[in-house]
Design a protein around this nucleic acid. Structure first.
Lengths: 320, 320
DNA sequence: ACGGGTGATTGTCACGCGTCAATGCCATTA
DNA sequence: TAATGGCATTGACGCGTGACAATCACCCGT
């Protein structure tokens, strides 16, 4: 493991010189020295120890992104990619942590003295404040914003179903535990819109993600035209297939909407009407927040922009 | 940010005492002292700086898992969860890195002096050796093993299709760049089995993941019964729908097989025959390798076990 | 020749921790 | 009483780095 001292002695300068040249103070030195040091470091494969750097600076260049226990689909992945790339441009390294096991999270992560923690999962208020007490910047949507966003998604689904002529609507959620956090708020959004426009709301269906379970749920539906606001494209796929198997025409008798604009929606036959969530909008703002070290946890004003990122992608499972 | 010195002075002992008590040498001290120190650390919310610890020990307690640019579905997630949990029991922290941007990877990660790097992505040989030169343990399937595994998946698909009475087979790969690494080897596996059993192999289809593209591919198929060995469940879903739309009966005229045993396969109607890849088998061995610090990069013997983890999950898209 | 100034480079300290030889303390024994 | 020994605790060092004060060489002007 080559250290800066190794590079220094090999290049015939002091360790301090090496450190300065490689940290933005190169203009203080002869062009020739700079070149020599840079080259030596290069050929020796020198990578500054993050440990040493962190110790000296008090903070590391690491950002930890907490991934909640939800489906890690392409949209989330793209979001993370953009975030990682953007942070890299500012010399920050983004690392991911799946937040399945919460308790072990703290001890290990706090010890890293990360530059910031991006919580896609919702941190409990006490947890967030504990992190802040330790001097760590915490970035995350407030619970309020997240709930509002979910409601908006639900409203959007109901609105689109209404526009396509469905007057009776049911929300469909997966039985899996993963999604229990968001599902209620999306359903609330659906219900809200329906109440507001005199549409009939059927009881929410809870289905396991299998063909058989979906079939059972479809059979329990009352007769007549119904629009299904599904939690995501996977659920939508299951309901779509079940409806067809049951002999119900889609979209004539049953309308199906998903959320995520995933490959599933595009690849399915018929294609599934879905809701696209454009996360990219937020990334830039997020990054600038992290870099500037602003501790503002809740960009509440960003709510508008977030909603602007919501968009119905029409497919063949709704309409007339 | 509370340091061990803070805890020490608050507890009325030396910093060294704190360090020893919190690092497994508690038996050297009075029960009373131990209790006092532990309690003080607790109430002060003390978390040892990983930077300092790393510096003193020369290695960090961090394991970096490199996630390749492939679908991060439930099986992969489960694998990562198991790995994270297992490592945590040994005091190691598993962090994830999406390896979309390879170049920036090195600099940042090497600086962490990680205990090990688990490469689910295939590292180029030179990259792997560079990491090893830096004294970092690299765990990963060798290219050879990965290729063999992919071939095995392809063979399994062809074998199942054969057993269900399909004598003409085509491989189907997605057009997306993400999958170009593995696809050829799976196709090679398909072809291998077919050649060996006098089955006819049609040219490999390459489709975009949309309903329309899949339809085009289906139309290009020659008449007669065909089995499709799709790269994954998403591709299978697209081909299934296209075949049905084209009026071809599934599974009578066209057989469809995916890979991944994802929700898609179970939720689709008809359910899709797929290949389950059981990663869990390998996790324990992997963990013990990491902990013991064995530098054996290639558990070539684990190949057998890996293959044992491959299993056809019958659905309704193949058969008679 | 000498003081002053400037630009290039170095020395030193602090960061938080783990480790281990060394210290101080006390009771027991000769 | 002095020596011995065991045990709880401490002191000092090193890990690799960044920041900044200090030094050095050198040239210019007088």
């Amino acid at each position: 493991m080559t250290s800066s001292a190794d590079v220094a002695s090999r290049a015939g300068v002091s360790r301090s010189t090496v450190s300065q040249i490689l940290n933005g103070r190169a203009h203080l030195f002869t062009e020739e020295t700079v070149a020599r040091v840079r080259e030596t470091a290069q050929t020796m494969g020198y990578r500054p120890s993050l440990a040493g750097r962190t110790l000296a600076r008090g903070k590391s260049d690491i950002v930890i992104t907490l991934i909640p226990d939800i489906t890690f689909g392409p949209p989330v992945r793209e979001f993370v990619d953009l975030l990682t790339e953007g942070l890299a441009k500012s010399g920050l390294t983004n690392l991911l942590r799946l937040s399945s096991s919460e308790h072990t999270l703290q001890d290990a992560i706090v010890g890293l003295r990360p530059h910031a923690i991006v919580a896609m999962a919702q941190l409990s208020p006490e947890e967030a404040s504990r992190l802040k007490d330790q001097g760590i910047q915490v970035i995350g949507q407030s619970t309020a914003v997240q709930i509002a966003a979910d409601r908006a998604i639900g409203r959007l689904q109901a609105e689109h179903l209404q526009s396509q002529g469905y007057t009776r609507v049911a929300a469909v959620r997966p039985r899996s535990k993963r999604e229990q956090t968001n599902a209620p708020h999306r359903e609330a959004g659906v219900i809200e819109h329906c109440r507001l426009h005199n549409m009939e709301v059927l009881p929410t269906l809870e289905v396991g993600l299998s063909s058989a379970e979906a079939l059972k749920a479809v059979r329990a539906l009352p007769a007549g035209r119904v629009g299904l606001a599904c939690y995501n494209d996977e659920v939508a796929l299951a309901m779509l297939g079940a409806a067809q198997r049951e002999g119900l025409s889609v979209p004539a008798a049953v309308g199906v909407m998903g959320v995520d604009n995933s490959v599933i929606a595009r690849a399915s036959t018929p294609t599934i009407t879905t809701v696209n969530i454009n996360l990219e909008l937020n990334v830039r703002e997020l990054i600038s927040h992290i870099i500037s070290g602003q501790d503002l946890q809740v960009p509440a004003e960003a709510m508008d922009e977030y909603l602007r990122g919501l968009e119905v992608v029409p497919g063949e499972t709704t309409g007339s």
